[in-house]
Simulated scan of single mutants.
Amino acid sequence: MSHSPNPHAEPLPTDQELVLKVIPMPADCNANGDIFGGWVMAQVDLAGAVLPARHARGRFATIAVNEFIFKHPVKVGDILSFFSRVQRIGNTSITVQVEVFAERFSSQGEYMKVTEATLTYVAIDKDGKPRAIPKD
């Protein structure tokens, strides 16, 4: 635990599922020395796909990034935790929210929300056309 309190520290969500954990490496940096936003976006897309996979029961694709907010930079060595929850299930699409928390290398045990996003995925058939999501 850090000796100086982090003003951005917050608890991890309890109403969402932990779907991915990853540590960014130096090769993932941008010219400023922070983790490249595109790398974070790719990880969010992977994390966001976990819950739709359970519902789609077959092929699906990212159809929209409805919102993407970078709240704080991600640093090399951060332990990133990706939490997700289903916001809406339609006839062919599923919208999910993903929140990303960083546990900084220098302040283990403290978490800071660094990114949040809302993405929509659509179930597709073998030809890439939308198909109905199976009802449970």
Rank of each mutant, 00 (worst) to 15 (best):
I124S: 00
P7Q: 12
A132F: 08
E110G: 06
L46G: 03
V100H: 02
L51S: 03
D125P: 02
W39S: 06
T95N: 04
L51E: 04
L20Y: 08
M25N: 00
D125S: 08
A31Y: 11
H55Q: 10
S107G: 13
V22G: 00
K75C: 11
P7F: 13
P73Q: 08
S84H: 05
Q43A: 06
A117N: 09
L51C: 06
V74Q: 00
V74L: 01
G58S: 10
T120W: 09
Q43W: 06
A117L: 05
I63N: 04
V65N: 08
Q97L: 12
P130M: 06
A123R: 05
S81F: 14
E67V: 08
P11W: 06
P7S: 14
F60D: 02
V50D: 03
K71W: 00
A49W: 05
E103M: 10
D125C: 09
D136S: 13
D28Y: 04
Y121G: 01
V40H: 00
R54Y: 15
D127Q: 15
A47E: 04
G90T: 07
R57A: 10
Q43K: 14
F70P: 01
K75H: 14
V100I: 10
E17N: 07
A42S: 15
P24R: 03
E110A: 11
D125R: 03
R88E: 12
A56K: 00
N6H: 14
F36S: 01
E116K: 12
I35F: 03
H55M: 11
I63M: 14
P134Y: 09
P73D: 05
I35L: 05
L51K: 10
A56I: 05
P13R: 05
E99S: 14
S4A: 09
I89S: 02
R131Q: 12
G33S: 03
W39C: 11
M112H: 06
E116D: 15
D34G: 01
N30H: 02
S84M: 04
D78S: 02
I133F: 05
K113G: 02
A49I: 08
T118F: 05
G38Y: 13
D127N: 15
D28C: 06
D34H: 12
S2D: 12
V100A: 05
M1V: 11
I89K: 13
V100G: 00
R131K: 15
F83M: 04
H72F: 07
D15Q: 13
D34K: 03
I94N: 00
G77F: 02
A49V: 09
S4Y: 08
V44R: 02
E116H: 13
F68H: 09
P24N: 00
A49L: 04
